[in-house]
């Protein structure tokens, strides 16, 4: 993920028409002065440094520090700064697609939150990085609002009848992250240890943290599902 901006090194992968179109649009935009190559580079540096581990850190710190948790739930955007995320970056006005309103949704013994965007794929990139491919599929968008318990079960998450499943259809300017409950078996753990079990899927609400599953055990995203369009 480190060489995604301009002047990528020569590589063997087949050339796709999407790659051709993107580069053509970018070069024309730069030639016309619509934005600069430096803008693109700066945005790339910011985007490539986004990772859900910031979200994991916020949850772990909330489990250990009730005052931090209170601040995070009250004002997610402002409190993000305490873990190094400024929602106004990289442009000074936030990102065009995700803007600057961030809310953290707290799970309780009687409430489980899960996030979907049925209309597009709104996702809190500044704190979770780029969205997973499945989150963007029409399939997830179609089904999560109406059959949440079935879809959660497909992710391996089965919730009892007395737990309210609350689906958040992220359809306007707000961006959301789930704060799961601290699991049993983590007594006395450090913030780093706790952060390691808060996976990306926990922060979307399709998984729950477990003391025996760390993010490093979750399979890494392979690059490219099918290589884009084949020529």
């Amino acid at each position: 993920m480190s060489t995604t901006h301009s002047h990528a090194p020569l590589k063997e992968s087949p050339l796709t028409e999407f790659e051709v179109l993107e580069l053509a649009v970018r070069e024309l935009a730069i030639e016309k002065g619509l934005f600069s190559a430096d803008d693109h580079r700066r945005f790339a540096e910011w985007a490539e440094s986004r990772t859900y581990t910031v979200g994991s850190r916020m949850v772990a710190r909330s489990w250990l520090d009730p005052a931090f948790k209170e601040r995070l739930l009250r004002d997610g955007t402002e409190t993000s700064k305490e873990v190094g995320v400024d929602w106004l970056q990289p442009t000074g006005q936030g990102t065009p697609s995700d803007y600057t309103y961030f809310y953290v949704l707290e799970n309780t013994p009687k409430l489980h939150n899960v996030i979907v965007c049925t209309l597009c794929s709104c996702y809190p990139r500044p704190v979770l990085g780029m969205s997973p491919d499945w989150y963007r599929t029409p399939n997830y968008r179609r089904r999560m609002v109406r059959w949440p318990r079935q879809v959660l079960a497909e992710f391996g998450l089965h919730l009892p009848p007395d737990v309210e499943v609350r689906v958040h259809d992220s359809n306007q300017k707000s961006r959301f992250m789930v704060m799961p409950m601290r699991p049993e078996g983590t007594e006395g753990w450090s913030e780093d240890q706790l952060a390691a079990i808060v996976t990306r899927d926990c922060l979307i609400g399709v998984a729950l943290p477990r003391a025996d599953v760390t993010a490093s055990q979750v399979p890494k995203q392979p690059k490219g599902r099918n290589g884009g369009n084949k020529r």
């Binding site: 949440p148 499943v165 609350r166 689906v167």
Partner: peptide
């Protein structure tokens, strides 16, 4: 959720939140 869907297969407690202008 039971108000939104004719054959909601979850439970009575389940809810959905979204934003409206």
């Amino acid at each position: 959720q039971t108000d939104l869907w004719p054959d909601y297969t979850g439970f009575e407690v389940d809810t959905l939140e979204t934003e409206c202008s």
